[in-house]
Write a protein that binds this DNA or RNA. Sequence first.
DNA 1: CCTACCGATCGGTAGG
DNA 2: CCTACCGATCGGTAGG
Lengths: 195, 195
Amino acid sequence: MSPRRSVAEARHTRDTIITTAIDIASLDGLEGVTIGRLAGELGMSKSGVLGHFGTKETLQLAAIRLVVDQFTTHVVEPALDHAPGEDRLLALCDNWFDYVTDPGLPGGCLMTAAAVEFDGRAGDVRDVVAEAWARWDDLLRKELGRTPGDFDVDQALFEIVAFGPAVNRAVQLFGDRSAAGRAKRAARRVIGRTG
Amino acid sequence: MSPRRSVAEARHTRDTIITTAIDIASLDGLEGVTIGRLAGELGMSKSGVLGHFGTKETLQLAAIRLVVDQFTTHVVEPALDHAPGEDRLLALCDNWFDYVTDPGLPGGCLMTAAAVEFDGRAGDVRDVVAEAWARWDDLLRKELGRTPGDFDVDQALFEIVAFGPAVNRAVQLFGDRSAAGRAKRAARRVIGRTG
DNA sequence: CCTACCGATCGGTAGG
DNA sequence: CCTACCGATCGGTAGG
């Protein structure tokens, strides 16, 4: 029984806490992630959980950072293998819609949920969520700008960013797993590719 | 000081509680509506608030019912003056996007937020929210079916229902008030009317 | 509609 | 990493 573990063990514990936190958050929201609930599920004491972060807000920020990393790994990075412009744009969209359908979280895409949960509040969590979404918008806008076709870039961007949350809604609220396919078709329509 | 008020007074108090609840819920979610917070804002005791509903869940259901009523009044009913088919469809869409932009609530459209907040849970609140959204989808699908044009009805429906939450996102997360205009244009594109 | 109260849980701290 | 504890708040009840 050694309360002080090694740095590697402490890091592993921290990762486990964050992983459990995003599972809970995807179901019940980031505010539903309470220290006591985490401690209970992990068989730890509350102070053991909180010691890794200091405050609940720091834990929430760490959870968002992990989700953003996962999004980058599953959606953005594979798309960078494709040529800039239309190919990369459609890869980003397709990866996004597949990821939202199956984000590896029991309650659906956490970034979609966090955007709605925090859009009416103030603070670091809201700012980090908004900034992550703004970067995603910028990435899509850049590829739209490189895509030839008879469309307005900002209008096309508005339409495409609508389809990700729409997939989340269809899957989580209605159990409709065909939504990703509809979203892929819709994205092609937006850029005038009847694919 | 008469603790027992008239039926009319009691009804007015009840309405005030629900109105305050949806204001809070639009900012902090339906779970952010606590009995104690309502009592504090209304200058009442907690048991005075709870006496009108019995449980918090009943209060949440009453709040959703009021929001659905407001939606019907501002979005659906005015559109029924338009001819079935394309005219009514576009009136429904335009009213919807305007309503989402300005729902008369400090934190944006509550139905959009509640769908995401409760989509991972079980219970009556989730069921009522899902059913309200399903009815809205059905209404749009019916008018899409009456609209002539070269489009697939279910594909068009998926795209159009995406634009309402997208307006909410743009307004609440980024303060972009031009989103309703983009959504109106997008809805017209979906049914092949470049208007 | 109130006061007074219940057990449970919240985020967080002290001290080891 | 723990136990033990803090004040605040949670939903809800008893009784009037």
